[in-house]
Write a protein that binds this DNA or RNA. Sequence first.
DNA 1: CGTTTGATGCTCT
DNA 2: GAGCATCAAACGG
Length: 194
Amino acid sequence: MSQLTRDFFDRDALDVAPELVNKVLVSPVGSGRIVEVEAYRGAEDPASHGHRGPTPRTEVMFGPPGHLYVYFSYGMHWCANVVTGPTGECGAVLIRALEPLTGVEEMYRRRPRARRDRDLCSGPAKLCAALGINDAHGGSDLCRGTDGLAVVDDGTPAPHPPTATTRIGITKAADLPWRFVAPDSVHLSQPVRP
DNA sequence: CGTTTGATGCTCT
DNA sequence: GAGCATCAAACGG
């Protein structure tokens, strides 16, 4: 059970993303195994929030690796990214789905519409609601684990290597295979398209 | 099953 | 004012 280091995140988002699959995201509410992520890069990725340079909203994407980039989506939801790559460059990995592990009771309390476990964290905004992640955690340092947030490797071997597919819910650069999923998981936000 | 639509507010032009 | 890295309910077959 080891916490991921700064060096793990200080690489290209495309290298970090597939290795985050099967790791465990921990919050004070509970934890879940990462089963779906998407990589977003800087200037050359028009779908990235940071592709036109830093703004007040996106500056943490240009900051040091291993911190959390939290954004407010569609006027209702929070979504969480892990910042990747060196300070000054833009990179992030969006956490899109988890398999709930601990704190499941509390997750149901925070997501009253969920009927079964696979409804709790099968989407980027769902998992933030379930784990209590919001703007208060923007910029939080996952490597130091302050705020009780961290990504850990619990040593569980992945049953299958991650599968690369196209990203979801974007209109620009929609053909790039920068979404990585645990292919056998029933907790994905959407099934892998055939 | 599948597709469509309303909710709701921030960000940048 | 347009456009969102979304979710859940409503509707049709």
